[in-house]
Every structure is written in C-alpha cells, then in structure tokens.
C-alpha cells in the first residue's frame, strides 16, 4: 500500500483526492456532493454486503441503509478516519445485523474458538497452472471466487473481505468486529488458507507430483 502523507487529523488520501471537500459539502446538506460520494463507493459497498451476507436481497437493503445512515450521521463524521473506512464500518454493522437475523446466533458468532491448527487446513500443495486471470473469463473467474468465499464461515469471510479485499488495517478490522488484534490475525490466516485450498483444487497444474506435509 502506498504510504500517505500525514495531514493533521485528516487522512492523506482523502485530501489528495479532493474527497475532504466533497464530504464537507455533503455535511452541509449538498445533495450533489453526497450523490458523488455514493457513485464513488456504491459498487464496493454492495460487493462487501453481498460477500458478507451471501444474500442478494439482504445486500440490497444493506446498500441502501448504509448510505441513508451515512447521510444521517454525516454531521458526526469528524474526518479522523478516511470517509471510506467510516462508511465501511456502517456497512459491516448492517451486514452483520442481516446475518444475525437470518441465522441462529451460534452460526454467526464472531468469536468462536478456533482449535484447528494451520497444518490441518493445508492439504493440497500444488503450483497453479499459469495465471487464472488469463486462463478464465471474467465471469467464470468471478463465479469461482464467489463460490470459494461463500463456503467460508461468516467470521472468516468477514475478516478476509475487510482485510484483503477492502484493505482495512488489522486495527480497524478488530475495532469494527469487536475482536482482539490476535483474533483478527488468526482468523485472517485461516481464511486465507481455506481459500487457498479451494482455489488450488481448481487452479492446480494437473499431473504434477503431489506434495504434502503428512
């Protein structure tokens, strides 16, 4: 990630992109400025909501509620974090609420004990055949990646999406999910390894000698 110049309390990237002005105007009730912010982030918010909730209908509600809440709470946005981080916090809360509504509390627990060690997640040890981005069409690749994420438990996919897709920091992720830093790190590693396992089964070079830890 590129390093950002410090600019007081205001996140540097936001200054650079002129976003601070846009946010300030939206705070004053400028509908056009708020629309511009929506246009900038709607795709990512919707994608995040779909990935976490795994339900199109819920994701649509999350998208809408996130921007409505953002508008409502904009006056309390202090600019200490980036606008997108602040927006993500709202979207994650909304997504988790949807998940909890649909499933029993037990399956959406964010803090369940994880006793398996990393080794037991890693079974398929094989190099990938070329570059999947080149071997597969966009649509097909998207479907494969979506399916892999979908197979993860909510806590793993939520941590993965926040850290590796939306590029939130470990600290931000921990704060958003009410987890310790250590818990975020261990869940992220397990999520990455589970996805690696699934993708390797699909992308591996066929006919290679199969390696393994056991």
């Amino acid at each position: 990630m590129p390093s950002e110049p410090a600019a007081g309390n205001v996140a540097g990237a936001d200054v650079a992109s002129g976003e601070v002005l846009l946010v300030e105007r939206a705070r004053q009730g400028d509908a056009e400025a708020f629309s511009a912010l929506i246009s900038k982030y709607e795709r990512r918010v919707y994608r995040m909501a779909r990935q976490i909730t795994q339900n199109d209908e819920d994701a649509e509600d999350v998208l809408q509620d996130t921007f409505l809440k953002a508008y409502e709470h904009l006056p309390s946005f202090q600019g200490q974090s980036k606008f997108y981080t602040w927006l993500t916090r709202i979207a994650v809360n909304e997504s988790l609420m949807k998940l909890r509504k649909r499933k029993s509390d037990r399956t959406v627990s964010l803090d369940e004990n994880i006793e398996t060690d990393e080794e037991s997640i890693v079974r398929e040890i094989a190099v990938w055949d070329g570059t999947p981005e080149e071997r597969y069409g966009q649509e097909e690749l998207r479907a494969i990646l979506d399916e892999a994420i979908q197979s993860l438990k909510p806590i793993f996919r939520t941590v993965f999406v926040l850290r590796d897709v939306e590029e939130m920091s470990t600290e931000e992720t921990a704060e958003m999910l009410g987890l310790s830093i250590a818990a975020v790190k261990s869940r992220l590693l397990r999520a990455r390894l589970q996805l690696r396992e699934k993708l390797t089964r699909i992308f591996k070079r066929k006919g290679d000698q199969i390696l393994g830890y056991v």
Partner: peptide, 22 residues
C-alpha cells in the same frame, strides 16, 4: 514455498477483482 506462493496468489486474485457496476 508452494503454500506461500499460492496463498499470495489467492490474496492477489481477490484484490485484483474490480467491483461490478450496480
């Protein structure tokens, strides 16, 4: 080495995917 390589690729393939228009 292979686990490291394929885990890096896993992360990058997700990072590289653009969010689609609504």
């Amino acid at each position: 080495w292979v686990v490291l390589d394929t885990t890096k690729k896993t992360i990058n393939i997700y990072k590289g995917l653009e969010a689609q228009p609504l």
